[in-house]
Amino acid sequence: MSAPASVAPPAVIRGERLGDGLDAAMRVVEVPMAALQRLLGAARMPYVFILPNMVLFTIFVFVPVGLAIAYAFTGGTNLLIWDRPYVGLENFRALLDCGSYLEPSTCRYNLFWTAVHNTWWYTLLNTLGTLFFALVTALVLNRLTRGRGFFRAVFFYPVLLSPVVVGLIWQWFLAREGLLNGFLTDWFDTRIIFLLDVGWSRVWVVYVSIWFHMGFFMLIILAGLQAIPRDIYEAAEIDGTSQWRQFWCLTLPLLMPNLLVVTVLLLIRSVQVFDEAWVLTNGGGPGTANTFIVQFIYQTAFSPDLRLYGLASAASVLMGIALLALTLSQLWLAKKAQV
């Protein structure tokens, strides 16, 4: 028509060339796949496409789930399942053998129950803490008209760091020679070896977790907040509703389904705490103050002097059941939230 039609946009040409180049390389896969299609018929090709994925899922998820249950009923330290004696419920009995569940020292495997107690407290505090900070931050960001993108990025950034990096950064921050102790010396003329103190180390493990993961949950809550229609607030504004009442009577109830899902997600994640706490506390210290269930499973199975695969699997199965219950409740809540 009017435009100089014969001049091709270079990007189109470049894209085409790339396509042709890859095309030539892909012949290696394409020819056998086409032959396969002739052999099986086009209608069976979807099975070919989905096969690699299903094979990997089978090998690395479905088979292990079955094995986890099988291992939980065997004893000994042999790795291969056929070398292991069947012991029935012995592993579960050993784990659950306790004078009082509230007092880990009365249990046969007191480390397990210490880990359960630690995990329980961690889960409680981390869930409440993260929920609080994520909610407030999301509300704040939702309110800002300028700089929202910037702050959202800042708060989300830690989520992308690796647990090792987070653990090390905070270990250094809290170290004897760290910045925090520098300030404490300046202002209060005192130094605290935070990570060697039972109480302080627990506080910091929870704090670091919140610092690490808060941005993720904030983002989900923020998405929920932004899904609330604006005109509801405008209507409330016209009615002369105070901001405080708007929050309690509009925002919170409308956000509730979203918050419930976030809460369960937090519970699921918290129960599995391991990586950053392990790095931060140099393997669950001081003593066993920050030893959690996953660490117990890991150590029970993989410590060279333990290698109690059966016991570890039994603990895995118990944790798996707890997680399954939480996940199912999450699915249920998510479904309800959609309605």
Binding site: M1, A5, S6, V7, A8, P9, V12, I13
Partner: peptide, 17 residues
């Protein structure tokens, strides 16, 4: 391709998306 493009008068747009 060139013959069909000419027939349908789209030979000016062959390199467009």
């Amino acid at each position: 391709v060139d013959a069909a493009a000419k027939l349908l008068a789209i030979d000016g747009y062959l390199d467009r998306r």
